[in-house]
């Protein structure tokens, strides 16, 4: 009897917490700050610099949303989350959105009751080996020792890949990326496997990057994207279309350099006009003002600018656009039309 009462109370509390999530936009506006969940530190994607300012690709998206909603890209409270705390932080309302290179999977979307608003980076699991090994394909890794982070989907992907190709391997379990780098450099394993973006950053940090190669095989699909709570569709729309605005801006050639000029008066391209609010009332439909997308793009540039500044080929990580090129350039980055 007592137990039932207790459970009942918990359910009511849980429901009440769920109900409170329904008006995220009002909450954010009343607070004057966007609580954005980020990584505790991942090269290129999110980390505080020496002055405590957060920088990175995912961080840039948080700033864009803050600029669209609140008008100030600095009005963000970055909440560092670990792989273990990220989902409860979002579910409990401690953060309004999560931009923390999280793979979009069915269970996370459906069972954990979140909404992925899109994909901002298509990643996949790869292998890093030394050039001395003379291996040109992951299929040559028969019998190799492989450093792998435990408790992640990478572990399962690896097992699947080797079983499908009927070859064997010996896993060397590690806990963190830093440990993986050290073990790999110390020769504790022949190959190191994690997401390809992480491998590129790891390789760039080596004393002699040219002595190491990332093998061409990508053995898993890791679409990383920002996510929000299930059940607040207005807020979900805002976050989704902020991402789409950044992507469309790149496609249509709106950059942080020419945005002032383009938004001054309606131009010849009607879609640009609709995005920048010089035509139509798309902002109003989202519950924001007409300039929302302009501010989001000005916060850190369009999708391509964010990519180039944080993880692109001019940075030490030097990731090629690859799958993350615009659809017109042969990639998968594609925004529905602003209409």
């Amino acid at each position: 009897m007592k137990k039932t009462v207790f459970l009942g109370a918990l359910t009511v509390a849980g429901l009440a917490a769920g109900v409170s999530a329904a008006a995220t936009l009002e909450d954010v506006k009343a607070r004057g700050k966007l609580n954005c969940g980020v990584v505790t530190g991942l090269v290129g994607f999110g980390a505080p610099d020496a002055n405590g300012e957060w920088q990175g690709f995912d961080v840039g998206f948080c700033r864009a949303v803050a600029a669209a909603v609140l008008g100030d890209p600095k009005a963000v409270e970055f909440v560092p989350t670990t792989g273990k705390t990220r989902f409860t932080a979002l579910a409990s309302g401690e953060i309004d959105m999560l931009a923390r290179n999280t793979t979009w999977t069915l269970t996370r979307d459906v069972d954990l009751k979140f909404e992925f608003v899109g994909v901002n980076y298509y990643d996949g699991q790869g292998f890093l080996v030394t050039k001395d090994m003379g291996v040109s394909s992951a299929k040559d890794l028969d019998g190799a020792t492989i450093c792998i982070q435990t408790g992640t989907t990478t572990e399962l992907n690896l097992a699947d890949f080797f079983r499908a190709n009927n070859i064997s391997y010996e896993p060397v379990p590690i806990e963190t990326n830093a440990e993986g780098q050290q073990q790999y450099l110390a020769g504790a394993c022949d190959a190191y496997t994690t997401d390809a973006s992480g491998l590129a950053a790891t390789r760039a940090s080596f004393e002699d990057p040219s002595a190491h190669v990332v093998l061409p095989e990508i053995i898993s699909k890791e679409p990383l994207g920002p996510l929000v709570r299930h059940g607040d569709n207005e807020w979900e729309d805002i976050v989704r279309w902020t991402l789409n605005a950044l992507i469309s801006a790149e496609e249509l050639g709106i950059t942080s350099a020419n945005i002032g000029e383009l938004s001054a008066a309606p131009g010849s391209n009607p879609e640009v006009n609709r995005i920048l609010g010089t035509e139509g009332n798309l902002g109003e439909m989202l519950g924001l003002d007409a300039d929302w997308a302009k501010r989001a793009i000005m916060a850190g540039g369009n999708y391509g600018e964010l990519f180039a500044k944080n993880i692109g080929e001019s940075t030490p990580i030097a990731l090629a656009r690859g799958l993350n090129a615009q659809w017109k350039d042969g990639g998968l980055i594609y925004s529905p039309p602003f209409r």
Binding site: V39, T40, G41, L42, V43, G44, F45, G46, A47, P48, D49, A50, G56, V79, P80, T81, T82, K84, T85, A89, T176, A178, Q181, Q182, A201, T202, A204, S205, F206, T315, P316, I317
Partner: peptide, 26 residues
């Protein structure tokens, strides 16, 4: 507390290594 995402000195080591300048420092 670094495991629950608070940036104590150990938590900060991860954040510092995420700066490409210092990636690889242990």
């Amino acid at each position: 507390v670094s495991i629950i995402g608070l940036l104590d000195p150990l938590g900060l080591t991860n954040a510092i290594r995420a700066d490409q300048n210092w990636n690889g420092i242990v």
